Amino acid sequence: MTSTWFESADDAAGRLRAAGYLTDDATALTAYLAGALEKPLLVEGPAGVGKTELAKAVARATGAELVRLQCYEGLDEARALYEWNYKKQLLRIQAAQAPSRGSDATWDETHDDIFTEEFLLTRPLLSAIRRDDPTVLLVDEVDKTDVEVEGLLLEVLSDFQVTIPELGTVTATRRPFVVLTSNASRELSEAVKRRCLFLHLDYPDAEREREIVSSQVPGLDDRVAAQLVDVVVRLRELELKKAPSIAESVDWARTLIALQIGDLDEATVARTLGVVLKHASDQQRAIKELKLASG
């Protein structure tokens, strides 16, 4: 089956822009190729550079449904693929053995009855595989999972299928657009990487970040936008626990609009740092290193 997500890299750039996501050339090209080649896309980079938002934007731009698997330490097959509704199965077993039935059902009959679609609880990976409509599957922060979880992904990423021992193999009739994100907190296996296209996202340059902020915050004065981005760039150069994300730059711009601030002077920067820096030590370092006024 052929699935047209984007007609070209230029089409991807234009439609993603219309969906509120400004891309560079590499991102637009890779997004196009991920759809054209039906290959999963592994997006790696620091937190807050728009990795997750890219998957959301693809869904918005193409009218697809977004299915998200949020990864975390301890994630297992039951939460990623599927599990059986054990409580409902137990009730069915008890009902099958009840004297009121007139005759006891054999175990084989009961077994075949309880391992059916009625008792299957689908989780994100299986849900995305089974959907007939266009679907974007977001496997978010895959580097936070245990190494064993990557094994669960391999069958999905290789053949877009899931094997359920009791029911057989479920194969996708329409391949989803798959985006895996990673903050590079650990190295992913070569087996997973081999199955994916790769895109590294970093913080945008000042010009593109100004464009992003201005597009997200209508009414922001161009001079204030330039001042804001200049400060954000300087903050990212410091050794902070958490550098400001693009989303936090946008939040800061909205804060300035709400406060009706027409000039981002040092005192205002110091007073509103809590919008972009969420650790007290980071705020103290910023005030000291950037020689900001304290009030």
Rank of each mutant, 00 (worst) to 15 (best):
W5F: 03
A9R: 07
A12T: 04
A13E: 06
R15I: 08
D25K: 10
A26Q: 02
T30E: 08
A34Q: 06
L42V: 04
A47F: 06
V49S: 06
V67Y: 07
R68H: 07
Q70D: 04
G74T: 04
G74C: 12
W84E: 00
Y86I: 00
Q89W: 00
R92Q: 11
A96W: 11
R101L: 13
R101W: 04
D108G: 12
D108T: 12
T110W: 02
T110D: 00
F115R: 00
T116L: 02
T116Y: 00
L121G: 00
R123G: 11
R123F: 00
L125M: 07
A128K: 11
I129P: 08
R130A: 05
R131Y: 03
V142K: 00
V142W: 01
D146M: 08
D146L: 05
L153K: 07
L154Y: 15
E155D: 12
V156G: 03
L157T: 02
S158G: 13
F160E: 03
F160I: 06
T163M: 01
I164T: 09
E166W: 04
T171K: 15
A172T: 07
P176T: 03
V179Y: 04
R186V: 08
S189N: 07
A191L: 11
R195S: 01
D205R: 08
R208W: 05
R208C: 04
E209M: 10
R210Y: 02
Q216R: 14
G219L: 10
L220R: 09
L220S: 11
D221Y: 04
V224F: 09
A226E: 15
Q227P: 14
V229H: 13
V231I: 15
V233N: 06
L240R: 14
L240C: 09
A243M: 10
I246L: 13
S249V: 11
V250C: 05
D251K: 08
W252S: 13
A253L: 02
L256P: 01
I257Y: 11
G262P: 10
D265C: 02
E266N: 12
T268H: 13
A270M: 09
R271F: 02
A280K: 08
Q283T: 01
Q283N: 06
S294N: 10
